[in-house]
Structures are given as structure tokens and as C-alpha cells.
Design a protein around this nucleic acid. Structure first.
Lengths: 340, 340
DNA sequence: TTGAAAGCGCTAACAG
DNA sequence: CTGTTAGCGCTTTCAA
């Protein structure tokens, strides 16, 4: 099948390639007749510009890349969904890559994306990224980069995030205000900043209400899995039989806690209240339903893309771009796993 | 920042662009010394070939596209995960697009992908796609296309699927064998073939065990949502108080059914057994845990990519490719929502 | 063993 | 209003 190029059209019409190109691009200095002729022929031949040639010429691909720690993950898929939705509106395509929470892999993927000359990159740090030279390099080389969710303060670029300290503070405060006195915390080792911030919020709340911080009430989950929540629930309750509340760093983990408590016939919320974090879908179907903090994934994806898009435009126009940081609001969703 | 091209390297070394290109590509007819010099300089300058120029020359992009009905969806994200994982091993990047179950949108996206000259397309039909000319056109135009999960028999291309009839038959048979006599079915209106096939499997099983098919026992969900399952559960049990089993077309829907039955104090599985389909993660955390059919999403994604990859290679070599169809096995996962 | 030249398809400055 | 020309960066044939 003969492929349709500007040249072909030009030859058929006996005019030059340049004229055809201009006619198709609505240049003002083209005869109306010529233009109609070209446009019609192009349409009837089903002409599609060769995007490689265009990209080569224009130095832009209309493709961005997103690197995400995990794909099968309620919160992260919401982010992807937000990004794809926003990107589509601006005629951008999205290449999705997963870091599997590996620092090394993250470096490789970033490199891969840069070598493909995508127009920009959206990144949520792997749970094991501790140095940031690879990010700085990318920014220096001129590829727009926006961090979302798992960010770092050490790199100067646009970011979309929630205030984990504040959100965790609110979660813990809610437990206190609904009558809990001995509140545990199950955190994670991954996601450095996030985890640290949520623990901090938990501590801040205790402090504000004059509850002494007890290190033995803080547990650490290896992998934030359902199973791990299940196991840690046994531990925490046998270590602290008088526990009456627990703030869990993520809903999946919290649902494991809930399941184990149920088996142990521990009354939730009357004996122990459980507060999750993220508002995953599954928090609506546990029994009792899980109280949690809403973490707006879709919106985070949308905003992250918009920041990146703005930066791409500025870059094209040769204007310096000042990084922006967007903090998305969170709020408590009270359900059956906490007292009223 | 000066960008590193073959030309730059050639100038620095006082040799020609062609020689540099060949040296970097391990051509046999290059002087060893020249080669080392080139390779070293390229490395020290951190040379990255311009992928647009390469694509333009070589007519290949090493990028494929996948169109999926929904992003935030346990089964589908597993598929995406499988595709991305397999693609990465072969140095392919994956553009992810969602059709939102819209036929019109599906056509547009396909068009978009083709115009970007990606190397191949993976597609799961939207729930509203009833004509297939757009697919045939793509195949004719020479873009490799592989259908997965929601396929159609009307298009001659490679496919990866499960046998929905058989799987639904097994599911229903399992209910019968564990003592259910009056078995309902909750199906969907979307996913034409899948839905139809699962209903068929249900009917086949009834027939085999001489249970009369009763149309009034078959319910249709609009959107396969949790809420819809919840609502339909009320309906089915009030219409048929003596119901003792129900085969539900998807786990999410089934979990809604389970929740409603629990509220109504209907003993699952002793009064009514519930069988889901897909083995979503959430089926492990309902109470009781949901018995279901395992649908291997990750593997489906992997296989779909491999078929596409084979086809892309064949196309490059100019060899005709015969479509292949891979049927993935499914099996019953018996949990607490069915009798033993 | 090397390099000149052509060309992938498109765009844009400039001349006519 | 139209066409010529140059060039984006790379690959490959063919001649030297």
C-alpha cells in the first residue's frame, strides 16, 4: 500500500511540497483554491502526517512518560487515570512505566525515557530512592520533570502532594476526640517521606492532647500488605491488651488489621477504633467499613499533568519556568470502624 | 547545552558521520582504533541517539499502544502490568489509553495511535463496540493488532482470551455439586461476548444436571458496580425467597450481593451460596470470603504482548504472519461463600 | 577502511 | 501566492 506523504500529494497536484504543507497548516498566504484542492485530496487519500518526521523537525513528541511504583494499586491507578484523562485533553499520549519500588530500576527507566525524547516526565519516587542526582541530571539536561505523591524536598522542581503530617494529625486527633486514649500506630518502612510524615502527624496529635508518646505502640510494616496488617494486628493487641485505637498508614494494611480483630472477636470500634489512610475502594466493603483519610488520586494525576504541561509550553517558548508546588486537601471519611 | 549528535562526534574526531555511525553500530569494516576512539568519546559525551531520527529512518518506534476499557480496575490493571513487564524485557515502551467503554472513543484512540506510528496495538473492546470495520481497517493498513479479553470472532487477528462458557459452566456446576438447586444468575449488559458466554455456561450447566432454565432467575446489572450488586441482591431474594445459589458475573458485583445478604441476615453459604468471577483482590476480604473463578490478568497481558511482538518481528522481516489464538486456563477458587 | 551522498518526511526562512 | 532550499539526525549503499 502506497504511503501518503506530502510529496505524493504535491506530485499529484503538480505543486510543491512546501505549498502542500502550508495549505494543510492553515498558513495565511495560500490561495483559497489551492488550499481547498489540497485539503480535499489529503482527506480523500486519508493523509496522516508522519509523526517521526514532525517530531524530528519540531523537537517535540507530544508524549510524556509516567513512572509509578506499582501498577496494581488502587491509589496509583487513580493517579494514572487522572494523568491520562488530562493528557488526552491536550493531545498528549502517556507512556506508563513502573519502578517496582527499586531505586536502580528508577534510574534506568528515567534514562530510557530521556533517550526516547519524550516531552516530560512524571515521577513518584520509589520507596528506596535516597539519592537524587539522577533527578537533578534530568532537570539540568532540560527535560521537564514533575514529582507527585512521593516527592523529595531536595530537588527543585514542580510537585503535587498532600500534607501527610496534617492529614495524619487529623486522623489521630479524630481518634482522640472520639474517646480513644491509648492509640497505636502501624507505619511502613517504604515511602520514606510519607511514612515519616504520617508518624510525625500522629505524634503531633498526641502531643497536642497531652498523651505521652509511647514508642512501643508504634509498629512497622515491611510491605504494607493485607497479610502484614493481619499479622501485626495480633502482635499489637497481645502486646497492648488495653489498646483502644490504632492509626494505620494505609487502607490495605488496615483492612488486614480489621480482619484479624474480627477473628479475635475484638469489637471494632467500641473496644478498638481503627483509622486507615487513602480511601481505597476496599475501605467501603470491609466490615465494619473503614474510617479513613481521603487521598485524591485522580486529582493528583490531573494536577501533575497540568504542571508538566505548563512547563513544557514555557520551555518551548524559551521562557524560564518557576517550579510550582500544589498541595491537595485531604479530609476524614468517618465510617464504622471509629466511634462517633 | 550543546546536544551530542553523530555530527558533533565526527567533527571532534575529524572523521565522517558515516564512520561514527558504523563504529557505534559494530559494523565489521571499521578500524579497531577508530572504533575505540569513537566509542570512548561517545561515552564520555554521554551520546544518546536521537530516537525520532532513528524511527524516521528505520520505520519503527519500539513503542506499542494498549487500549483498555477502564484503568481503575483490578483485572485490567493486572493486564497492564503484564504487558508493561513483558514489553520492558524486549525494550518496548507502552502507551496506555482508556476507552471508557465508548465505541466512538475507541475509534478515535485507534486512529490516534496509528497516526503516531506506534509499532502495534493491544485492544480490549469497549463494552459498546458492535461493528468492527475500524479494526479491519487497521489490520489492512498493516498495523499489528492483538485483541485480549474482550474479543470478537469477526476479526481475523491474534487473540488472548479465556473460555468464558467453560468457566461459567464450571462455576455453576460447582454450585450444583455442592447442593444448590435453585440457582440465580446476575449478568451484565456490557462486554457483549463475555456476558453472553457466561450466561451460556450457566445454562449449559443447568441443562447437564437437568435443572430447568428459569428466565426469571436471571438478572442484569447495568454497570457491574458494587452498588448494583447490593440492589440486585434485594431484588433477587424478594422475588425468589427459596433461592439457594447465585452465580454472579463479576467479583465486584458479587461483593455487593454479599454485603446486602449480610444485612438481610441471609446465611451465606448455608442458605444461599454465592459464586463470583475474576478473583479480584477484594474477593479475599469480603466476609465470608468470596468463592470465584480465577482469571489470569497478568498472564493475559504478557501473552498478548508476546503475540504482538512476534507479529511485529515477522512484519519487519516481511514474512506473513498467521494469527494465533491463546486460550488461558481458569480454575475455581473455593472460599467461604460456597458450601463444601 | 573510510566517506560522500541520498533520503526518511516534514517545516520554515527566504526569494521570486 | 508559490517554490526553492536547507536542514532536523540517522542509516546505508556505493564508490574511492
Amino acid at each position: 500500500m502506497q504511503k501518503v506523504t506530502l510529496k505524493l500529494i504535491a506530485n499529484m497536484l503538480g505543486i510543491s511540497v512546501a505549498t502542500v504543507s502550508k495549505a494543510l497548516k492553515n498558513y495565511p498566504d495560500i490561495n483559497k483554491d489551492t488550499k481547498t484542492k489540497v485539503v480535499n485530496l489529503a482527506k480523500s487519500l486519508n493523509y496522516k502526517p508522519n509523526s517521526f518526521a514532525q517530531s524530528l523537525r519540531n523537537q517535540e513528541s507530544k508524549v510524556i512518560g509516567i513512572i509509578i511504583p506499582e501498577i496494581v494499586h488502587y491509589f496509583f491507578s487513580n493517579i494514572i487515570n487522572g494523568v491520562i484523562t488530562a493528557a488526552e485533553k491536550k493531545d498528549y499520549l502517556v507512556i506508563v512505566l513502573k519502578s517496582d519500588d527499586s531505586y536502580k530500576h528508577e534510574i534506568e527507566l528515567l534514562d530510557l525515557l530521556v533517550s526516547k525524547s519524550i516531552d516530560g516526565i512524571l515521577l513518584s519516587l520509589s520507596g528506596n530512592t535516597i539519592r537524587f542526582d539522577h533527578l537533578k541530571k534530568i532537570i539540568e539536561e532540560g527535560t521537564p520533570l514533575v514529582l507527585y505523591d512521593r516527592i523529595t524536598r531536595s530537588v527543585n522542581c514542580s510537585k503535587v502532594l498532600i500534607n501527610d503530617v496534617k492529614a495524619a494529625f487529623n486522623a489521630t486527633e479524630y481518634l482522640i476526640k472520639t474517646g480513644c486514649k491509648k492509640i497505636g500506630h502501624i507505619g511502613g518502612i517504604l515511602k520514606p517521606q510519607t511514612t515519616i510524615d504520617r508518624l510525625k502527624g500522629y505524634r503531633n496529635a498526641l502531643e497536642k492532647y497531652n498523651i505521652a508518646y509511647d514508642k512501643s505502640l508504634v509498629y512497622v510494616s515491611r510491605d504494607l500488605s493485607y497479610q502484614d496488617g493481619y499479622d501485626l494486628a495480633s502482635e499489637i493487641i497481645s502486646d497492648h491488651p488495653d489498646l483502644d485505637g490504632v492509626f494505620v498508614v494505609t487502607d490495605l494494611l488496615a483492612s488486614g488489621v480489621l480482619a484479624r480483630f474480627k477473628e479475635l472477636k475484638i469489637d471494632v470500634p467500641n473496644k478498638v477504633s481503627v483509622m486507615g489512610f487513602s480511601n481505597w475502594f476496599l475501605s467501603q466493603i470491609t466490615s465494619p467499613k473503614l474510617s479513613t483519610i481521603n487521598q485524591p488520586g485522580f486529582e493528583m494525576g490531573e494536577k501533575a499533568f497540568m504542571l508538566l504541561y505548563k512547563e513544557i509550553l514555557k520551555k518551548k517558548e524559551g521562557i524560564k519556568y518557576e517550579p510550582e508546588i500544589i498541595e491537595l486537601p485531604t479530609h476524614i471519611i468517618a465510617r464504622g470502624s471509629t466511634k462517633t
